[in-house]
Design a binder for these strands. Structure first.
Lengths: 235, 235
DNA sequence: GAGACCTGACAACGATTGATGTCAATAGTC
DNA sequence: GACTATTGACATCAATCGTTGTCAGGTCTC
């Protein structure tokens, strides 16, 4: 638990496409049991990755914590690394989903979505500090910089780019400014969240939200577009 | 190599405190040889940590790359983790030393030190991308959040705090604003450096410097100090 | 109850790990 | 040349790793 809604699918009588009742085992179909085991493994991986780190996330340790045997590990995951990526992806996806919900709520209420989104993101990580470690520390290991799949920060950057583009001054900055500001914001927000969770910033949560909003507004207008003057006057 | 000046101590005739000439071996005293081996191990650790990651940094792999045997590993380092921390510390220390030099040069020339410092820091990482991976990715593993020794970002934060305090508006923000802004800046600069090194920001280096300076100036004035109004008017 | 399916416990595999110890060959001093 | 300090190659230790396989015992359907 910790990153998803902990409820199984609501159907009590499962049927296969042909209409015949599916075989059950202790009240669960084969698919339900498999999904449950996969969820158990993901939970165990989440716990280990979020508290001990990637180095401690092994097949045996995960299975022991999940209450399953090694055979069922390879039923749901190809390898140790496959589980690692799945855990990181779950945490990241759930976090951005929370921001998306906040955005839709704000839009429905015709309110500015930025602050609610920031608050939702911070809430998500403050509810469970393991999420922060996974998202901001371990994700860099699971998905190194040159990696083909990158579910973490790029999602944040895309989201910030989107928000910045919503009310950007077309006359002042160019497209590169938008991207640069999105990365700068993603980095600063991540740093503030992590350090606040770690207790190094001894201020109330609401102040973090206000400050992150302030940083957002401040960075929003930053531009480094080339000047008209041929040579920059001074260092 | 990669993070230090690759020259041995210049003395050719070593003498011990009593004045007697120290015994040499291939022209080097015992201390010089030991220091050389330690440097070889650090270089090898730097290479492995900066390209493969902490998971691949083992005693055997480091020794093989350093051209030494395992016995000499434990001559200079207590454990595998000890080397890991030493490598991270070297990269971090050298980077901040470069910023310090830039600051002193600017101060001596009565110029604003911020932009030269930013450029020096970016130069340091762009000269060797392995430094960036070590500083911004692997350091999080070597020194987890609750760790007692934290040579990485806190140094950046202290430095940003120092710069921000130099010309901060006492009337507008309070001490917490200073700290919050320092962390926000550390995070944004790290993110911009990493993404630019990774090729995701396709702009000239000088524009990154300009943009980082812009972010610095913009964040400098951010404040989240409690307002006088009892209730915040709107989200 | 018979037979089929599913489960958990555990053995086994080769490989690798961190760390320590042994030992012959080499480079130096006298 | 004799003797010592130093070196590098390698053996060794228990432990752990990812992964696959075996097998007795439980749980279902008929």
């Amino acid at each position: 638990m910790g990153w998803r809604g902990d409820k199984l699918d609501g159907m009590t009588e499962a049927t296969d496409p042909a209409g015949a009742p599916a075989k059950t085992w202790k009240g669960l179909t084969a698919d339900q049991r498999r999904d449950r085991r996969r969820a158990q493994l993901l939970d165990a991986g989440f716990e280990i990755l979020g508290t001990l780190g990637a180095a401690e996330l092994g097949v045996r340790s995960v299975c022991r914590r999940a209450g399953l045997t090694e055979r069922y590990f390879y039923e749901s995951f190809d390898s140790r690394e496959s589980l690692l990526e799945a855990v990181v992806d779950q945490v990241s996806t759930a976090g951005f989903a929370r921001m998306g919900e906040a955005r839709h709520r704000a839009n429905a209420a015709r309110a500015d979505p930025v602050k609610p989104m920031i608050r939702a993101y911070l809430d998500y990580f403050s509810e469970d500090p393991r999420r922060g470690r996974i998202q901001f520390v371990e994700a860099g290991i699971a998905f190194p910089l040159g990696h083909h799949r990158k579910p973490g920060h790029p999602r944040a950057v895309a989201l910030f780019t989107d928000l910045l583009a919503a009310d950007s001054d077309e006359e002042k900055g160019d497209a590169a400014d938008l991207t640069l500001n999105a990365y700068a914001l993603a980095g600063s927000q991540a740093e503030l969240i992590m350090r606040w969770l770690d207790g190094q910033l001894r201020v109330p949560k609401e102040r973090i939200v206000r400050h992150m909003l302030g940083v957002f507004r401040a960075v929003q207008d930053v531009t480094s577009r080339a000047e008209r003057v041929p040579k920059e006057p001074l260092d």
